[in-house]
Amino acid sequence: MDVAPLSIEIRPNCSLTVRGARLLFASACVMPFGMGGFLALKGFWPILPFAGLEMLLLAWALKVSLERRFHSQTITVTESNVSVESRQRLGTERVVFPRHWAQVKLRRPAASLHPSRLTIESHGRQCELGSFLTEEERRGLARRLARAIGRVNESPSWP
């Protein structure tokens, strides 16, 4: 009996668009650079470098936070395979594991301040899943995948 493949798509929550971030950044630049520039023209230049440093920091913070927007993973579980397609800003990577050898592992972090790590592993290869999820979401995903994929000592379903 054919079973429809299970597909789970995970992505982080982002409420800011790239355009929104650009607008926000531009509006934040107006006052520090406007005032800093004006005062620099009057000879009081030390304000401008501080404004520049601050805006660099804001740009970095927005970039780091927006990177999340481009992350997503699609996990597809079929009768014979488990495939993980990871998309980032620079490209897509696809990893395929044989379903009956694939193991779902949720590792506690070495340090308690770090997040746990969820992986699918088989034959010495591993693929990390849901690094951008919250702890609770990651644990929920681990349970769901463990149920969907089965254990290594379970036989694959009868063809």
């Binding site: 789970i8 798509e9 992505r11 972090p109 301040l113 770090h114 997040p115 644990r139 349970r143």
Partner: peptide, 27 residues
């Protein structure tokens, strides 16, 4: 996430909450 996950009790007992002074210094 595209699909909601069930939140069963298994494996939920550790919330990785640090304790002692490290909780505050590395908060």
């Amino acid at each position: 996430m595209a699909e909601p996950h069930a939140h069963a009790a298994a494996h939920d007992d550790h919330d990785h909450k640090p304790h002692g002074w490290r909780r505050w210094v590395f908060a």
